[in-house]
């Protein structure tokens, strides 16, 4: 708990927390504007109204979230490397894996807040713009959880990468490369491709149905834990010499 407070203090004047919250607000605004403008076209699609609401807007929202995650993850460790503050941390009686975990948790919570904001907007739209009686709260909540879980592998992966490279351009480049390769391969049906964390994140966006793909959720959980475990292990055992 104390470590978390310390971590939050360190992040003062950096954009780590604002960036994901801003992404959430931007995503929510996009949903409103886009639905207002394209309402008739969207509802005219041969899909169930709930599927339209959740999958047709999610593509753009997901890309916003993805870049929010990449940028926030880059910054959360950049502040340690700039001024080589992390070297001081190694000389203090504290746990370095603990610090890693705190950064991971802070990003997870802010990402969740962003996704909650976006889905709050979708809920408002659903309640006021969908044809009478077609809005389903359960489906929306389920999709919210689905989009959160499928976004976590990218977060876990990006925190890992950013913790290992002092030069912020490296994790940023990895993030962009991940995004591009993920986008190129997202619509492929081959399940093995889901070992690529960015492809997992793209899954809900390329689907036509709001029903969660349980295989993707499974891959997501495993990858999230795997990258987190790897990051903690490296924080404990590999030093910046």
């Amino acid at each position: 708990m104390r470590a978390l407070v310390i971590e939050l203090r360190k992040e003062k004047r950096t954009g780590v927390i604002p960036v994901l919250l801003a992404v959430g607000i931007l995503g929510a605004a996009y949903a409103f504007v886009s639905f207002l403008i394209r309402k008739d076209t969207l509802l005219g699609l041969p899909l169930a109204p709930m599927d339209v609401l959740l999958t047709q807007l999610y593509g753009m929202i997901m890309i916003l979230n993805l870049f929010g995650i990449v940028v926030a993850a880059c910054m959360v460790f950049h502040l340690e490397f700039k001024g080589s503050a992390v070297k001081k941390m190694y000389m203090l009686p504290m746990s370095v894996p603990g610090m890693y975990l705190c950064k991971f948790l802070i990003l997870t919570v802010t990402l969740f807040a962003a996704i909650a904001l976006e889905n709050l907007a979708l809920m408002k739209i659903g309640q006021s713009c969908l044809p009478q009686g077609t809005f389903e709260m359960g489906t929306l909540l389920c999709f919210t959880a689905y989009s959160f879980f499928t976004s976590m592998p990218v977060l876990s992966f990006m925190v890992l990468i950013s913790s290992r490279f002092e030069n912020m351009w490296v994790p940023l480049g990895v993030g962009v490369a991940g995004f591009l390769s993920g986008m190129a391969l997202a619509s492929s049906a081959a399940a093995v491709l889901m070992v690529h964390p960015f492809i997992v994140m793209f899954k809900p966006a390329v689907a036509m149905s709001a029903q969660p793909d349980m295989l993707a959720v499974m891959f997501a959980q495993i990858e999230t834990l795997l990258f987190l475990g790897l990051g903690l292990w490296m924080a404990k055992n590999l030093r910046y010499e």
Binding site: V5, K10, K12, K82, K87, M89, M94
Partner: peptide, 25 residues
């Protein structure tokens, strides 16, 4: 300890930097 070059959080003031260390200790 003080090894080689000073280490600090560039985004924090001098006092805030010391406060981080103080809290850890």
């Amino acid at each position: 300890s003080f090894i080689e070059a000073p280490s600090f959080y560039a985004n924090l003031t001098g006092r805030e930097n010391l406060d981080v260390i103080r809290r850890i200790l």
